[in-house]
């Protein structure tokens, strides 16, 4: 990859739109980091998660294009909504696109999947008394 920005403005817009939709559907905060890691990818992704404003309710997607590594990290509360199995399925979808060289498509698809899996259906009539 020659020197320059990782994404074009249109690609950035697509990723940001997917992030916004996932946040609206799940109520969680989504963050995407694309770049190299100073150390091992998992500890580095955890450091990034802890730098967020509300790490417990956040989902961080970390992509290392040079090292060809992907990490999805969920905070303590986010983990209740987004299980590790669901995160693994989204990681698999992203991995397929990344292997084909499509970073933007992989991120958009994966974030959409994460948002869908973390989606919480609204509780209808939850406050009404139970009637037989």
């Amino acid at each position: 990859m020659p020197a320059g920005d990782a994404f074009t403005p249109e690609q950035l817009y697509d990723i940001e739109r997917a992030v916004r939709h996932a946040e609206t559907a799940s109520g969680l905060h989504f963050s995407v980091y694309v770049g190299g890691a100073d150390s091992e990818t998992r500890p580095f992704a955890l450091e990034l998660l802890n730098e967020l404003d509300d790490p417990d309710n956040s989902v961080l997607v970390y992509v290392d294009p040079a090292g060809r590594r992907l990490e999805i990290v969920t905070g303590a509360n986010a983990r209740r909504q987004l299980t590790d199995t669901s995160a693994g399925l989204a990681a698999l979808a992203m991995q397929t696109s990344f292997a084909a060289g499509d970073l933007t498509g992989g991120l958009v698809t994966g974030i959409q999947q994460l948002g869908d899996h973390a989606h919480q259906a609204p509780l209808v009539h939850a406050k009404e008394p139970h009637q037989q």
Binding site: M1, D5, F7, V34, L52
Partner: peptide, 23 residues
């Protein structure tokens, strides 16, 4: 479209953080 990511080749672009810390 600009330069394209090719797996296996080096990555020179600066890091991008979407939805990062606000302050």
């Amino acid at each position: 479209k600009g330069p394209r990511y090719r797996p296996g080749l080096s990555w020179w672009a600066p890091p991008v953080w979407i939805g990062g810390p606000t302050a």
